[in-house]
Amino acid sequence: MSFLSVSRVSKSFGGAAVVDAVDLSIERGEFFALLGPSGCGKTTLLRMIGGFETPDNGTIAIDGEVMNTVPPHRRPTNMVFQNYAIFPHLNVFDNIAYGLRRLRLRKDELRARAEAMLATVRLEGLGERAAGQLSGGQRQRVALARALVREPKLLLLDEPLGALDKRLREAMQVELRAIQRKVGITFLLVTHDQEEALSLSDRVAVMGAGRILQVAAPRELYERPNCRAVADFIGDMNFFHATVRQIGDSVTVNAGLLGILALPRANLAPGIRTDDHILLAIRPEHVGFSEAGVAGEIASATFLGERSHYHVKIAGRSDPVSVSGIAPTHGTVHLVFPPDHLIGLPNA
């Protein structure tokens, strides 16, 4: 059995299902992200794992113990709250030591553990600082230290970097990953920021409308999304309608504008059959410019440094094709769509 096991968990508020029969397994020591747009139920799922909401159905087990009705203060989890929830009447040291005080530690042991944690989050010497005098990044560190100092089996992070500016967020991402490796605690992160999820996590679960759409390692998620919603949410993606002609060692599809193409069998999402109407998906960086191919007109070009981003209008299609590469800034171009990078997704 996995370390964290969520099975058939549902939760609705006022008749609306927010989390809908979710299954999830997380292994010990993993850095796992729940990724999805706001309102997809990811925070509610996290709060049920932390004990702040009770599931209507299903079970949540941590390390083999069913947790459904166990209150937060008896769970082997700790949480970094979205707004950090720093206790305003306590200084940094007392915030961090808060969860240690009732463990009946010796005074010097308590101090040693809190000081060690201050060092881990690089807040040495700031123990006496009042909560109100902290910067955003410092508050984030205090919240992290306060949760980690209790050595939980599972650390829950609710959009922990959402309140920080871009630069600080990127720095904290690196640091968060390093801290997780150092303490070896299982991290479960909730975020709507795909970049954050992809760069930090061992595995990512993409959620949409209360369900889990796909669970995969970041690279796989990017290269082999299993449905349109995941492909759309992560990065930029072009879609073309197509019909499956034949499924053998490779898959032959009639892609209309793009002609008849043969894709590797592995590029086809499971469950698709011959004659199914499907979507062919391709990332902008995989669309190529060439001498021959599908003719198109550059509608817009955005210079991004080492490469540019183009919108190319092609005949018979209303949406322009997104292409990332190097080409002239206007005029007619020819596009090629390498079959190795075309993914066949259910048309849903």
Binding site: G50, G51, F52, P71, P72, H73, T77, N78, M79, F81, Q82, N83, A85, F87, P88, H89, Y98, G99, R102, L103, R146, A147, R150
Partner: peptide, 25 residues
């Protein structure tokens, strides 16, 4: 802020301790 009470619960405090350590002060 109600999340302070949730945080106190998360850090091991039952209802009474939560009241004495967060709400009352």
């Amino acid at each position: 802020d109600r999340s302070l009470l949730e945080a106190a619960g998360d850090l091991g405090d039952g209802a009474l301790r939560r009241f004495l350590r967060i709400t009352l002060p």
